[in-house]
Amino acid sequence: MPRIASALVTIALTSLVATGSGCDEQLSDLTGPTPNLTPTLTSIQNDIFSAADASGRVACTGCHTNVGRMPLAGLNLVGGTAHAALVDRSSVAKPGAILVVPGDPDNSYLIQKLEGAAGIVGQRMPRTSGPFLTPGQVAVIRRWIALGARND
């Protein structure tokens, strides 16, 4: 192989590897108002359940808390209790619907309520009529469920 060919091949492959190592889309670009959101319960708790965000979305624990009140629909999403309240638990409002089915986001009632899917009982969440979670934020929660809805 001529020297110039070797040099070009080396440059091309090196650049390819360098490009490949930084190719992936950034999760922070997808999660909009919560750029640090990742598919772990800790992150979902800190960035979604317990916090409002820059879009004006209210925190879930505004209503779903046992601090100073009864949790709405019996669902307490305060830190440390959310996992037990969600995973493999039936909805109070819609008997038979499981709030979080580990590994199955489509059949998890939590996702259906967040997306306003057909067949939900009551309003889409948050029930302030918006702002709702962005598709990127819901995708992260879906991924958490798809990975087994671990208490991580």
């Binding site: 992936d24 999760l27 992260v140």
Partner: peptide, 10 residues
């Protein structure tokens, strides 16, 4: 590489 248009984490 990177045929999936979603981030690696998802």
């Amino acid at each position: 590489n990177n045929t999936n248009e979603l981030p690696n984490e998802l």
